[in-house]
Simulated assay, not measured.
Amino acid sequence: MLIDSHCHLDFPDFQTRLPGVLAAATAAGVGRMVTISTHIARFETYRALAEAYETVFFTIGTHPHNAAAEPDIPTDRIVTLSAHPRCIAIGEAGLDYHYDKSPHDVQQRVFRTHIDAARETGLPLVIHARNADEDMIRILSEEMRRGRFGAVLHCFSSGPKLAEVGVELGLYVSFSGILTFKNSDDIRRIASAVPRERLLVETDAPYLAPVPHRGKTNEPAYVANTARALAEVIGVSDAEIADITTANFYRLFSKAAQADRLATAS
Rank of each mutant, 00 (worst) to 15 (best):
F156N: 10
F149S: 08
R42Y: 03
R109L: 06
A151P: 08
R77F: 07
L49S: 01
R112Q: 09
R112A: 07
T38K: 12
F58W: 15
E142G: 13
D72E: 02
G91S: 11
A129F: 00
A117F: 03
A83N: 14
H63P: 04
D105V: 11
S157T: 14
R112I: 09
H65Q: 06
V110F: 13
A52Y: 06
D72I: 06
V110C: 10
M144L: 04
Y53G: 08
G147A: 05
I137Q: 12
P160V: 04
H65D: 12
P85L: 09
T59Y: 00
G31L: 03
G159R: 14
A117L: 09
E164N: 09
I78K: 03
R138E: 15
D72C: 04
E120M: 12
S102E: 05
R119N: 01
I137K: 04
T26E: 12
R138C: 14
G91A: 13
A50G: 00
T35Y: 03
S158E: 08
N131F: 13
S141K: 08
P124A: 13
K161E: 09
L81G: 13
R32A: 13
R42N: 06
Y46C: 07
D116Q: 15
L140N: 08
V56P: 07
H154A: 03
H114K: 02
K101E: 01
I127C: 01
R77M: 01
A118K: 03
G122A: 08
L140R: 03
E120N: 14
R119K: 10
G94N: 07
V110D: 12
H114E: 04
S82Q: 04
H84Y: 06
V30D: 04
A48H: 11
E92P: 02
